Amino acid sequence: MELIQSHELPAPAGHYSQAVAAGGLVFLSGILPSSAEVDPAVAGFEAQCGSVFEQCGKVLRAAGCGVADVVQCTAYIVGVENWPAFNAAYARVFGAHKPARTVVPVPALHYGFLVEVQLVAQRPQ
């Protein structure tokens, strides 16, 4: 098992890794749209989606992957009414690539964020 840490992001505050590689796959932990530019009290859902996918991209790059290598996505969104906005952001990020996906509406997320994304990618051969 290889622990992966993007040097473009702060280290996790909890007892977990940003991602772990094992058996040719890369498993990203749940990523929040936390960055200096995204204050959950101010940033809307679309801005948070942009930020969370940017954060995911940084972790994927640290693992030697890109969005085209993603095979599965699990997203947690606050409010089912945000589903169309999530779909639009997801389509912009993945384009014609269509990994398996689960979207789970939830009542709340850590720190007041509105979206959290977890990915599984296959490392290029």
Results as ranks from 00 to 15, higher is better:
92 R>I: 11
92 R>W: 11
92 R>T: 14
92 R>K: 14
92 R>G: 07
92 R>A: 13
93 V>A: 08
93 V>Q: 11
93 V>W: 11
93 V>G: 03
93 V>K: 09
94 F>E: 03
94 F>T: 07
94 F>Y: 11
95 G>C: 07
95 G>D: 04
95 G>V: 05
95 G>I: 10
95 G>A: 04
96 A>T: 15
96 A>H: 14
96 A>Q: 15
96 A>V: 15
96 A>C: 14
96 A>L: 14
96 A>S: 15
97 H>M: 04
97 H>Q: 05
97 H>K: 02
98 K>Q: 13
98 K>L: 13
99 P>Y: 07
99 P>L: 10
99 P>N: 04
100 A>C: 05
100 A>E: 11
100 A>V: 06
100 A>W: 12
101 R>W: 10
101 R>V: 11
101 R>G: 04
101 R>D: 01
101 R>Y: 08
102 T>E: 09
103 V>H: 09
103 V>W: 07
103 V>F: 09
103 V>R: 12
103 V>M: 07
103 V>P: 03
104 V>L: 08
104 V>W: 02
104 V>A: 02
104 V>R: 04
105 P>L: 01
105 P>R: 02
105 P>F: 03
105 P>V: 03
105 P>I: 06
105 P>H: 03
106 V>L: 03
106 V>A: 06
106 V>F: 01
106 V>R: 03
107 P>E: 13
107 P>N: 13
107 P>T: 15
107 P>I: 13
107 P>G: 13
107 P>F: 05
107 P>A: 13
107 P>M: 10
108 A>I: 14
108 A>S: 15
108 A>H: 13
108 A>T: 15
108 A>V: 15
108 A>Q: 15
109 L>R: 07
109 L>C: 05
109 L>V: 11
109 L>M: 02
109 L>T: 11
109 L>Y: 02
109 L>A: 02
110 H>P: 00
110 H>R: 10
110 H>E: 12
110 H>M: 09
110 H>G: 02
111 Y>R: 05
111 Y>K: 06
111 Y>V: 07
112 G>I: 05
112 G>W: 02
112 G>M: 00
112 G>F: 01
112 G>A: 06
112 G>Q: 02
112 G>L: 00
113 F>P: 01
113 F>D: 03
114 L>N: 02
114 L>P: 01
114 L>Y: 05
115 V>S: 06
115 V>A: 07
115 V>W: 07
115 V>H: 06
115 V>L: 11
115 V>T: 11
115 V>I: 14
116 E>I: 14
117 V>M: 00
117 V>Q: 04
117 V>E: 03
117 V>D: 00
118 Q>E: 08
118 Q>L: 04
118 Q>W: 06
119 L>Q: 05
119 L>A: 10
120 V>F: 06
120 V>T: 15
120 V>L: 03
121 A>D: 04
121 A>W: 09
122 Q>Y: 13
122 Q>K: 15
122 Q>S: 14
123 R>K: 15
123 R>Q: 14
123 R>L: 14
123 R>E: 08
123 R>N: 07
124 P>T: 13
124 P>A: 12
124 P>R: 14
124 P>N: 13
